[in-house]
């Protein structure tokens, strides 16, 4: 079922941001130049956070022990990357917030993750397809970010790139096996492509903030990642006997804070303790 409107409505995003600002005590505004960087760091940090959360939902419920362990490794990598990205975002913001503050004390409209990563797990094939589509993008993104003009970004990206190269190796392999497995597995994987494809386009859409950060050589230009991504996905799909959809329609809004209905539930669960016991230390 399609969720909340995925259209990009800047006014709503702006309203949401102003509303959110009231929740925090007045603090000095970050300098204008860093606002775009802060946003772009949230886009990657929130994406790894939400995907890590989704993947961790499988712990103890996977089809085989080996898969349970492998998926937990992926989730652990993503959570570790989140700590790095959000810590840097907090530093750039300069408002004395920590990575945990950003993860646990923002509402959905302040989250900047891709819509793809908040999609529900579905069956195991659906989860693997979501992971693969993300990994193929993530890998290209990190390769670009590892060459960042900002050494802090380059360092985080270089470490993450090694982890994600393995994620991609594993999901590529599984997509091929399941696409070219039984009739049932093929059907499930094709259904996953169908369900998720329209959430991939957002990864390559740039707004003014992306453009500014790309122009400064800090993060890669999103549009530049489409071609290599498509090459990876196309090659894997061909081997997996899965058809590449020709639809170019893209849901968008996650990077600007307009999410699907799912994110609210993820945060309600994730943030419960921090919200129920404000100020406690864990």
């Amino acid at each position: 079922m399609p969720s909340l409107p995925d259209m990009n409505t800047p006014e709503v995003a702006e309203l949401a941001r102003m509303q959110g600002a009231h929740a925090h005590p007045p603090v000095p505004a970050p300098d204008a130049g860093e606002q775009a960087l802060f946003e772009c760091l949230l886009r990657i940090g929130d994406s790894t956070l939400v995907l890590g959360h989704r993947v961790s939902e499988w712990c103890g419920h996977s089809p085989a022990l080996e898969e349970d362990i492998a998926l937990a490794n992926v989730a652990l990598d993503l959570i570790g990357q989140t700590q790095n990205w959000l810590a840097l975002a907090a530093e750039v913001e300069g408002q004395d917030r920590s990575a945990d503050d950003l993860a646990y004390l923002r509402d959905a409209w302040d989250f900047r993750n891709l819509l793809l990563v908040e999609r529900p797990n579905g069956d195991f094939g659906h989860t693997l397809m979501r992971q693969f589509l993300f990994d193929a993008w993530h890998h290209e993104f990190l390769k670009g970010a590892a060459a960042s003009t900002d050494p802090r970004v380059a360092e985080i990206a270089a470490k993450a790139a090694k982890e994600v190269a393995y994620h991609l190796e594993r999901t590529s392999d599984l997509i091929v096996r399941l696409g070219d497995g039984t009739a049932e597995s093929h059907r499930r994987m094709a259904a996953a492509v169908e369900a998720l494809w329209s959430y991939t386009g957002e990864m390559f859409l740039a707004d003014a903030k992306d453009a500014e950060i790309a122009a400064r050589g800090i993060l890669p230009d999103p549009a530049s990642l489409r071609e290599p991504w498509l090459a990876t996905v196309g090659a894997v799909f061909a081997e997996a006997t899965l058809a590449l959809p020709d639809s170019a329609f893209a849901h968008k809004g996650g990077k600007q804070g307009i999410h699907t209905e799912h994110l609210g539930y993820i945060l309600a669960e994730m943030q419960f303790l921090q919200r129920a016991y404000p100020g406690a230390s864990w």
């Binding site: 085989a64 080996e66 362990i69 492998a70 392999d173 096996r177």
Partner: peptide
Amino acid sequence: SLHAPDAEMAILNARDVYTR
């Protein structure tokens, strides 16, 4: 030991299970 459908997956699984 571990279970895997073939040698290639056994290598991947071994990496995840035994080099944590």
